[in-house]
């Protein structure tokens, strides 16, 4: 599907209460256009829960479900099996959670559902911290980033660990589909959600969604920063379809510093730290490329 062919109807409506410039909101309203109305959604405690569903109002025009924080994949499992029982297998069950709800507290339920190859699409919108509770560090927060739990103090500043490689962990579950996407790459985004929709079994897409509030950047720069993440190699776009891994876009290897500059969360970083991050990017890209080569 081309961008022009995306339907006009919004299944995630305007009037939602996301911050101005929210990357997650861009992802959600567009992925819903691709997935269509025969979709049921389960969503844990996260920004999206609040800005998309605050009683009695909902932005969702499809069945929407929230249970707790760490169990998105387990709840999606229950919904998916129920649809099977009711003979409504064609209904797509989507679990959509943030990075905290996925990479940290939700990873057990997620791993279980993936291993059982439950029939669902699991989307992680990655804004690289616990934004709903006010910008705390998650396993998906990049090295060096300021958050309220990795504050810039007198003896320590920013996160001292590197970002957890969730897509790789998911590929290790040998599920039918794993992909990374970005709100900055429209065609790639549409194609991957289309593909996920066309398949059965467990599918995982991790979407890179900048957060102006938490990353401390100009609200107008959300998409620009998402593109920079891909250009610098901070975020690799690829997919794994039934075990075959394809790189979607080779990074230009623009210096990481270009990506860090517009974001307040990296402002305090020393040259040495920037270099550490640059080294990490080089190694990560090298590993991603090799991985793709040996999984042809």
């Amino acid at each position: 599907m081309k961008l022009k062919d995306l339907p006009d109807e919004e299944l995630f409506t305007r009037g939602h209460t996301a911050c101005a410039g929210c990357g997650a909101a861009i992802a959600v309203r567009n992925l819903m256009k691709v997935l269509g109305p025969n979709t049921m959604v389960v969503n844990p405690a996260c920004c999206l829960l609040i800005f998309g569903a605050t009683y009695p109002y909902l932005a969702w025009k499809v069945p929407f479900h929230h249970v707790a924080f760490e169990n998105t994949a387990a709840c999606a499992t229950g919904m998916s099996r129920a649809m099977k029982v009711l003979g409504k297998d064609e209904t797509l069950i989507m679990g959509i959670a943030g990075d905290g709800g996925t990479a940290d507290i939700g990873i057990q339920a997620l791993s279980g559902a993936a291993e059982r190859n439950e029939n669902m699409l699991y989307v992680m919108y990655d804004n690289e911290a616990y934004m709903n509770t006010g910008i705390q560090r998650s396993g998906s927060t990049p090295f060096g980033a300021w958050t309220t739990t990795t504050p810039v103090g007198k003896v320590k500043a920013g996160k001292s660990n590197f970002k957890k490689d969730m897509p790789l962990i998911m590929m290790a579950h040998n599920v039918p589909y794993v992909a990374t996407a970005s709100v900055g790459h429209i065609q790639d985004f549409i194609r991957k959600f289309e593909k996920a929709k066309s398949m059965k079994g467990f599918r995982y897409i991790q979407v890179f969604t900048p957060c102006p509030t938490g990353w401390r950047h100009d609200t107008a720069k959300t998409v620009e920063i998402a593109k920079l993440a891909v250009d610098t190699g901070m975020w690799t776009l690829y997919e794994s379809e039934n075990g075959k891994v394809t790189i979607s876009k080779k990074p230009k290897m623009t210096p990481v510093a270009e990506y860090l500059k517009p974001q307040g969360r990296f402002r305090h970083m020393s040259e040495e730290d920037v270099k550490s991050l640059q080294d990490w990017v080089m190694k990560k890209w090298e590993a991603d490329e090799k991985y793709a080569q040996c999984r042809q």
Partner: peptide
């Protein structure tokens, strides 16, 4: 969790 969501799905 799965029981809750399956039950919520009817």
């Amino acid at each position: 969790s799965a029981c809750v969501s399956a039950s919520a799905s009817g």
